[in-house]
Design a protein around this nucleic acid. Structure first.
Length: 463
RNA sequence: GGCCCGUUGGUCAAGCGGUUAAGACUCCGCCCUUUCACGGCGGCAACAGGGGUUCGAGUCCCCUACGGGUCACCA
C-alpha cells in the first residue's frame, strides 16, 4: 500500500516551529517511502480562524521545500482539502448519520451546560430542537492501539465520555472530522504532536465503530522552551518568520528542528532535505520533549553560512552590509575581500551589520586601543609605526603581496613581529580592536587612497 | 484530581542485559595567526531516587519524586 501522510494545520496564525517540525517529519517520511504528502486545512472552528493564516502556511512550507503532493491549491484525487469545503457536501453529517443507523451514535439535545447527558436512548429520529450527535462509547472494556514511538497504549473505555461528533452549529468536531478525513483521504500514517496521544483512543473507537482500519500512529514529543514550558507563540520567538528575521537560513532552521526529537543513525548532524528524506527513521524519534537551544541552532546556521560559495554569501550579505549605511551609496571598496573575511565571522546574517560600520567611516575611538600586549604596541609605538606604514602603502603598485613583503622586511629588520605594524594599521583604518580581517586585509579592501587618508588622520590624532 | 506519557553531562542525544557510557553544541586549554574569527588538537561534565529480577542493569519489573499531556459543542 502506498504511504500517504498529511499535515493538517488549523489556520490560526503564523507557522510555529513545532508545527513546522511535524510537517517536516510527515514530509520526509512520505518521501522516504515513496509516498504522498498531503496538506489539509482544518478550519472547522470559525471563531479561531485568522485571515491570511492559510497563506502563511503555504508560503512557509514552500520556502522550506516541503512540497505537498495534494492540497487545496493543486488538487489531487481526494479534493477538497479544506474542511470547511468538505463540509459543504454534507460529508461529515453523512458519516454521523451512518453511525446513528448502526446504533453507534445518537442525537443529544442536552444544553451545553448540562452536567450529565441522559440522551443515550434518545430516538433515532432527528429532534426539532438544537442537538448534537454523540458517539456511543462502550461502557466496559478497554481500547488499545500501538504507537510507533510510544508502543502499546491502552485505556479503559470508562475514561472516555460519549464524544460529540457534530456540534449544534452543524460543524463536525475536530476529532470527528479528523478521522473522517484521514480515512476518506486514505492516510496511512498519522504523524502529529503527542498532545494527541490522549485522544487517539477516541479516534480508534471511531474507526472501530465504522469498521475501518486505523492508520499507523506516530506521535512526536513537543519542542520546549525550558523543562516545563512548550515553545509557544507567546514566547515571541517560536515562529519560523522570527528566525528568518534574525538572519537564519531556511535550510539551517529545517536541519536543526529535524534534530530536535529525532536522532540520525550516524554521527553526522548536517542534512539537506533530500538527505533527511533518506536518513529519516521512526526508530530515531524520541519519546521525551526536547528543549529548544538557539545556541546550537546558531552553530548549525554558522556551518551553513561558512560552506556557502562566496558569491552566494555575498548576495545574502550585501543587504546587511548596507544596513548601516548613512544614506548614500555604499563606498567603492573591494566587497569580495570584505565578504571573504566576513563569512567565517558570521553565525547569523544579522551579525554582519555591526561588524562593517567602519567601511562608511571610522567612529571615534580611544587612543589606548593601540595598546596590545601581544603585539607590543602602544599609542607611542603606533605613532611611528603608522608613519612607516604610510610610506609603505603609498606605492605605485599597491598589491597585497608587495605591501606584505615590505612590512615583513621592515619588521625583521627591526626585530619585531609584523603585528607591530599591522595591528596599529588595523586600528587606524577601522577604529576597532577586532575587525573582519587584519590591518593589511582592511587596507587592501579600502583601497590606497582611503587607507592613506585614514592613516594620516590617525597620525594626527596621536600627535 | 483521574487517565496517559516521559526522566542519560548545561542543551540535543547514542545506547536495546556485559561499553573506558558515543557524538554534536556550549565552556576551558593549546596550536595556527597581523586583530577577531575559521580550522586543528586536547579537556571538564551524565544514567532522578529507592527497591527488586539477574552471575551481571542506563538497559527488564515495581514504588517514589519531578516534568509534560489530556479530560471542551478548541484544534
Amino acid at each position: 500500500m502506498k504511504v500517504r501522510t498529511r499535515f493538517a494545520p488549523s489556520p490560526t496564525g503564523f507557522m510555529h516551529l513545532g508545527g513546522l517540525r511535524t510537517a517536516l517529519y510527515a514530509f520526509i517520511f512520505a518521501r522516504k517511502h515513496g509516498g504522498n504528502f498531503i496538506l489539509r486545512i482544518e478550519d472547522t472552528d470559525r471563531a479561531r480562524y485568522v485571515e491570511g493564516a492559510t497563506e502563511v502556511i503555504y508560503e512557509t512550507l514552500r520556502e522550506c521545500g516541503l512540497n505537498w503532493d495534494e492540497g487545496s491549491d493543486k488538487g489531487g484525487g481526494y479534493a477538497p482539502y479544506i474542511q470547511s469545503e468538505r463540509m459543504k457536501d454534507g460529508l461529515y453529517m453523512k458519516y454521523a448519520l451512518e453511525l446513528i443507523e448502526k446504533y453507534e451514535a445518537y442525537y443529544c439535545y442536552c444544553l451545553p451546560e448540562a452536567e450529565t447527558c441522559d440522551c443515550k436512548n434518545s430516538k433515532i429520529r432527528k429532534p426539532d430542537i438544537p442537538f448534537v450527535i454523540r458517539q456511543r462509547i462502550p461502557c466496559g472494556g478497554t481500547t488499545a492501539f500501538k504507537d510507533e514511538v510510544y508502543g502499546e497504549i491502552k485505556v479503559d473505555n470508562s475514561e472516555i465520555e460519549d464524544q460529540i461528533l457534530i456540534k449544534s452549529d452543524g460543524m463536525p468536531t475536530y476529532n470527528f472530522a479528523n478521522v473522517i478525513d484521514d480515512h476518506t483521504m486514505n492516510i496511512t500514517h498519522v504523524i502529529r504532536g503527542n498532545e494527541f496521544l490522549s485522544s487517539t483512543p477516541k479516534h480508534v473507537l471511531l474507526y472501530k465503530a465504522f469498521g475501518w482500519e486505523p492508520p499507523v500512529y506516530i506521535h512526536a514529543a513537543p519542542i520546549m522552551r525550558d523543562a516545563s514550558h512548550k515553545l509557544s507563540k507567546r514566547d515571541g520567538d517560536a515562529y519560523f518568520s522570527d528566525f528568518k528575521a534574525k538572519g537564519y537560513l531556511t535550510r539551517a532552521i529545517v536541519n536543526y528542528i529535524a534534530l530536535l526529537g529525532w536522532s540520525p543513525k550516524g554521527e553526522n548532524e548536517i542534512f539537506s532535505l533530500e538527505e533527511l528524506s533518506s536518513e529519516f527513521d521512526i526508530s530515531g524519534i524520541s519519546k521525551s520533549p526536547a528543549i529548544f537551544d538557539e545556541v546550537k541552532m546558531r552553530a548549525i546556521n554558522a556551518h551553513y553560512i561558512r560552506t556557502l560559495p562566496l558569491e552566494e554569501f555575498k548576495l545574502l550579505a550585501m543587504p546587511y552590509i548596507c544596513a548601516s549605511a548613512p544614506e548614500s551609496e555604499p563606498p567603492a571598496i573591494d566587497y569580495d575581500i570584505l565578504c571573504a573575511a566576513l563569512q567565517p565571522r558570521t553565525e547569523v546574517l544579522t551579525d554582519i551589520t555591526p561588524q562593517v560600520d567602519f567601511i562608511f567611516e571610522v567612529r571615534d575611538y580611544q587612543a589606548d586601543l593601540y595598546n596590545n600586549k601581544k603585539m607590543k604596541t602602544s599609542p607611542e609605538t603606533a605613532f611611528s609605526a603608522l608613519k612607516d606604514s604610510l610610506k609603505i602603502i603609498n606605492t605605485d603598485g599597491f598589491s597585497r603581496d608587495e605591501i606584505y613583503d615590505a612590512f615583513k622586511a621592515l619588521s625583521e629588520k627591526n626585530g619585531v613581529k609584523i603585528g607591530y605594524y599591522l595591528y596599529p594599521l588595523q586600528v587606524a583604518l577601522t577604529g576597532k580592536p577586532a575587525a573582519p580581517g587584519g590591518g593589511l586585509d582592511i587596507c587592501v579592501m579600502l583601497g590606497k587612497d582611503e587607507s592613506l587618508r585614514r592613516i594620516e588622520k590617525a597620525i594626527v590624532k596621536l600627535s
